[in-house]
């Protein structure tokens, strides 16, 4: 008896199929925006996330301001030393924190791989200053730093820049559900508060 694999592939090959024309990619791959960072700020805020703008030199001060009184903050390896401002109880993920430690954390500070202005999306790729996926998932508060040169306008620009090997997480606002009467409610399993610091 043929294996399931051989049988399924065999069924497909038995179908008379005609060659399809090349995919028409007449949609806009790159979109222009006068102020991509401003557009990102507006679109992120639409999801009821909080957005703050900061000049590069005032970033540590802004981070301290956001994290003041927030308790224990998890932080991935590779976060620049100047982000780890004094006065915050830091929980570095190095060596990796246990699930119960992360459950007990009050928040997390991370960077990102890039951000998509048009859709108000931040993308994490587990790379520099982002760490493991679980870090930005279990704590109820996420402060994410986005630099102006990480902002693209359209989804195609983002897909082109990202490394498919991943793992990738696209984040558009705090966790939400539309399951009750198709009305969006923020705050289910992921961080219920998302704050974005836009730098530059």
């Amino acid at each position: 008896m043929a294996s399931a694999r051989e049988e399924i592939l065999g069924r497909i090959r038995a179908v008379d199929r005609q060659a399809t024309p090349a995919v028409p990619r007449e949609y806009e791959r790159v979109r222009r925006a006068d102020d991509p960072v401003g557009l990102l700020a507006e679109r992120v805020a639409d999801y009821r996330a909080t957005v703050h703008r900061a000049a590069a030199r005032e970033l540590p001060y802004r981070i301290a301001e956001r994290l003041d009184g927030r308790g224990r903050i998890a932080v991935p390896p590779g976060v620049p030393w100047e982000w780890r401002v004094p006065g915050v109880s830091w929980l570095p993920d190095d060596p990796p924190l246990g699930v119960s430690d992360l459950e007990a954390a009050d928040g997390v500070l991370s960077g990102c791989a890039l951000a998509i202005a048009e859709t108000g999306t931040i993308v994490l790729d587990a790379g520099h200053a982002q760490g493991r996926r679980v870090l930005t998932l279990l704590p109820d508060y996420h402060l994410c730093v986005v630099h102006a040169d990480q902002v693209v306008v359209s989804v195609p620009e983002a897909v082109e820049r990202l490394d498919p090997k991943g793992p990738l997480t696209f984040i558009s606002g705090p966790s939400a559900t539309s399951d009750i009467e198709l009305d969006r409610v923020e705050g289910v399993h992921g961080p219920r508060t998302l704050e974005v610091l836009l730098v530059g």
Binding site: R43, E118, G120, P167, G173, P174
Partner: peptide, 20 residues
Amino acid sequence: TAERMNPYTSIWSGVTPGDG
């Protein structure tokens, strides 16, 4: 859901050592 983007999209490829 009639949103510009849904809140979360996860993309992975096989197994990532130390993550997930």
